Simulated scan of single mutants.
Amino acid sequence: MTSPELPARFYNPYAFEFDTETVIALLADRHIRQAIERGEFDDLPGSGRPLDLPAQHDPDWWLKGLIKREGLALLPASIQLRKDDAALDDLLDRLPHEDAVRREVRQFNERVVRARYLPPAGPPLITMPRDVDATVTAWTARREARAEEARRQSSEHTSGTLPPQRRRRRPARWRRRG
């Protein structure tokens, strides 16, 4: 089968050598194409739904895995500072003393001021720095209120206003034999 426009010396049917794997792949491809033409793959379960491929096929699989594993959120500075501002009181309530509270509020204020000097990336920055003394005063009031609540619950428990708890008896099989 030589082409009429090419001389016979340019076509050599023995010039191509196929290894076994290539031949098998070509035959498999041919059989699959014939099955598609016959319509044998038309009514398979799950047709039309996306494939659930492993993450290794994604070029960013490592970065996405790190973000998911570490629970990181990549948000614009304005949104991240809003979230941090909303959660700051709960964070401060877990701190043991006033110096740690002051240090945490100062660090928050530094991040807010630093974000004001950056070019905006996302929504506008509406978070304002906090007044350190006012925040410490509010922290002290919350701490005293929690301590008072704990004292009140402790006094209710010891004064007998709560019903006495019944002691459970062990079943006979658990009792010690002496």
Score class of each variant (00 low, 15 high):
residue 1 M to R: 10
residue 8 A to W: 00
residue 8 A to G: 09
residue 11 Y to M: 12
residue 13 P to W: 01
residue 17 E to G: 14
residue 20 T to C: 00
residue 22 T to M: 13
residue 23 V to Q: 14
residue 25 A to R: 04
residue 27 L to F: 10
residue 31 H to F: 10
residue 33 R to L: 12
residue 34 Q to N: 04
residue 34 Q to A: 10
residue 34 Q to I: 02
residue 36 I to L: 13
residue 37 E to L: 06
residue 40 E to A: 12
residue 40 E to M: 11
residue 41 F to K: 08
residue 41 F to D: 09
residue 41 F to W: 12
residue 42 D to K: 15
residue 44 L to G: 05
residue 45 P to Q: 02
residue 49 R to L: 15
residue 53 L to H: 02
residue 53 L to N: 03
residue 55 A to S: 10
residue 57 H to D: 01
residue 58 D to G: 02
residue 60 D to S: 08
residue 62 W to S: 01
residue 63 L to R: 15
residue 65 G to C: 12
residue 66 L to N: 04
residue 66 L to C: 00
residue 66 L to W: 06
residue 69 R to K: 11
residue 71 G to R: 05
residue 77 A to R: 07
residue 82 R to Y: 01
residue 83 K to L: 14
residue 83 K to F: 13
residue 85 D to Y: 09
residue 85 D to A: 15
residue 92 L to E: 04
residue 93 D to G: 11
residue 93 D to T: 07
residue 94 R to H: 13
residue 94 R to Y: 07
residue 95 L to D: 11
residue 95 L to P: 12
residue 95 L to G: 12
residue 99 D to H: 08
residue 99 D to K: 11
residue 101 V to C: 07
residue 103 R to Q: 15
residue 107 Q to V: 03
residue 111 R to E: 07
residue 111 R to S: 08
residue 113 V to L: 15
residue 116 R to Q: 12
residue 117 Y to N: 11
residue 118 L to I: 03
residue 119 P to V: 06
residue 120 P to I: 03
residue 121 A to I: 06
residue 122 G to Y: 11
residue 123 P to M: 12
residue 126 I to W: 04
residue 128 M to G: 04
residue 133 D to M: 03
residue 133 D to W: 04
residue 133 D to V: 03
residue 135 T to N: 10
residue 136 V to D: 01
residue 137 T to C: 01
residue 138 A to L: 10
residue 138 A to N: 05
residue 141 A to Q: 06
residue 144 E to H: 00
residue 145 A to I: 04
residue 146 R to H: 01
residue 154 S to P: 05
residue 154 S to D: 14
residue 154 S to E: 15
residue 155 S to E: 10
residue 156 E to T: 08
residue 159 S to G: 01
residue 163 P to T: 10
residue 168 R to M: 05
residue 170 R to E: 11
residue 170 R to K: 13
residue 171 P to V: 05
residue 174 W to Q: 15
residue 177 R to P: 04
